[in-house]
Design a protein around this nucleic acid. Structure first.
Lengths: 337, 337
DNA sequence: CCCCTCACGTGTTACGTATAACGTCCGGGT
DNA sequence: ACCCGGACGTTATACGTAACACGTGAGGGG
């Protein structure tokens, strides 16, 4: 039957006994002072009866806007980015916006043309944890752009939403120092993005102010295996063994824990391990990880809000979201020995 | 400059000295025998110069199809579903298709109306791990539908892509039995979907054929905390303690490991633990989990292929993908004691 | 009594694309 | 000489919506 053909605004108009233009006005919400309350009600009722849904393609064509945003993330399989998406999608949904993801092969940035024919038409872009130059194509294209976790941009640049990463690292360092740790190795992700640069720098700065502090650094890829290898290097390096491993992420911390156990060391009795991100992994491990909770959903949500504001021409001041240390079982005072 | 307004097919036509219709023919690929090679080349060259991209809204309006699929997943923050998405997006991309996700608040199925704003914009739906009745609205709406991980459908029903879950469970049971285990507790997810029903049933069936086998079952929510509690119950239940915990997922296995350690038991020396899914979590834990690897990306990819076939009116036979046991360190022969 | 204004709608158009329905030119068969 | 048909394009139209620019009465001020 006709169940498959969806009703158009003209069908609604016919049912309500008005013209298509009136339907558009009423349902578009811009009818105040142009259509009587009675007529508007009739239109709305007819639309309800027919289960009318506006044809988005036609609307987009007419308006030149699609109410769709592109979210660029390095890898959706990383829980952090999945959560960023979730937050962004929630806010988008509240504003009748859609979100499409940049289908990037794991880890690659938007090297491919995001305006390729396949991708949905886009009103704006939200890019997370991208090197700024990786987005030059988008900026040149004149598309509204919001950057997440990329550091405070230059004035006049795209709006930004950042986490207080430096503060988070400071909390970790103070936590460790407060427990009595002085020999600390920073297990650093070998990734050249703002967030990791800030972490490295903050660890240095914060520890520089502590008497007797000794900082070492081991770099590795952002994965368990490499982290384990790096932690082994850290724990078997010549000189006195570090009493704490400060890791750039929970995933690295997991590797560090494996390394410690492999060397016959107990966590946290012989060596403390701290993470970052507070992924579900943090409480799946045993001992549970002391880590820093990142409000990933909020990052996505604020990013989407910023984009919506930008599209409205509203001012979009840079945002920085606070982060919090979550002390758990993987850190304790260093061995007295 | 005019850099912001994108060129239309008419602009290309003007540049190439032909009509808009010819541009559409050439770029649409249906010009054989209707347009000379020379002209076609001129059109393509002009399109290249102007960096012409067809307006997708206009195309969708004209064709009544959007080249976009909706992927419904319970929760993107579960690594399995993120990987399903990745696979689906890859195939979609290869066919100039887009994928949008159903923006479902964690865990809820399409309780909200998937036709809200999205329906107009999609050509079909891929639903993963859904209870069949949760999708009645979609089926009724006449939208092409493919179901993932929902079991072989009735003939005439929507195409399906499933994992050989039963075989995976059989491999685990045989692995444990082969190691010598007889008292096994199944840590079962308290979720009423096909995949988990099959697992419970298969464990029963497979163990029924083993002399002296004793099967117990503990149900819990699909999370670390509840799993830990359930595992504690299992390990402290009256009677002889099980020597192996067969878990319905790596997440549950993580909880089981924590429970064991909390009770002073070593994994795998005192109790073996097996997982399912082979998430990155499986190798982040210590000991690494014996588990079953699920080709999540393939599930998504095959699902998208099936949907594309369905849209082409091609036959779409049910698919079942094989799974493989990955033996690791969390299982060993039971204590001889 | 006439015209202006306001309240309430309607006719029409354009958005950019794909395609059905037409030309037009030209060589060849009869 | 006439018609036919293939090769090569073009003209015109529809998709469904939003919004501009007009009607059209009714009521009121002058």
């Amino acid at each position: 039957m006709a169940g498959s053909d969806r009703p158009t605004s003209r069908d609604v108009a016919r049912a309500a006994g008005v013209s298509q233009a009136t339907v558009s006005l009423v349902l578009g919400g811009k009818w105040r002072g142009r259509v009587s309350e009675r007529t508007a009600d009739a239109v709305r009722r007819a639309a309800g009866e027919l289960e009318y849904r506006p044809n988005l393609a036609a609307r987009s064509l007419r308006l030149g806007r699609t109410r769709t945003a592109l979210l660029v993330v390095p890898a959706l399989t990383h829980e952090y980015f999945a959560r960023v998406y979730t937050g962004a999608a929630r806010v988008a949904d509240e504003h009748d916006f859609g979100v499409v993801l940049y289908p990037s092969p794991e880890g690659t940035g938007p090297a491919r043309d995001p305006f390729g024919s396949a991708r949905a038409a886009i009103d704006g872009v939200i890019a997370s944890s991208m090197a700024a130059d990786a987005l030059s194509g988008i900026a040149d294209g004149g598309l509204p752009l919001v950057m997440l976790d990329s550091g405070p941009g230059a004035a006049g640049g795209p709006p930004t939403v950042d986490l207080a990463v430096a503060d988070g690292i400071r909390q970790v360092v103070r936590h460790l120092v407060g427990l009595g740790h002085r020999r600390i190795t920073h297990l650093a992700a070998d990734v050249d993005t703002w967030t990791f640069r800030v972490r490295a720098q903050t660890v240095r700065e914060e520890l520089a102010g502590v008497a007797g502090a000794e900082l070492a650094t081991e770099r590795c890829e952002l994965d368990v295996g490499p982290a384990r290898a790096a932690a082994v290097r850290a724990l078997t390096a010549p000189g006195r063994r570090p009493t704490a491993l400060l890791c750039d992420g929970d995933v690295l911390a997991a590797g560090a824990c494996k390394a410690a156990r492999g060397l016959g060391l107990r966590v946290p009795d012989d060596v403390s391990v701290s993470g970052f991100d507070d992924l579900s992994l943090a409480t799946a491990l045993d001992p549970e990880l002391t880590t820093v909770r990142l409000p990933a959903e909020d990052v996505g949500a604020r990013g989407m809000s910023a984009l919506l504001a930008l599209l409205d021409g509203a001012p979009t001041p840079p945002t920085e979201l606070p982060v919090h240390l979550i002390p758990r079982a993987s850190t304790s005072p260093p061995p007295t020995d």
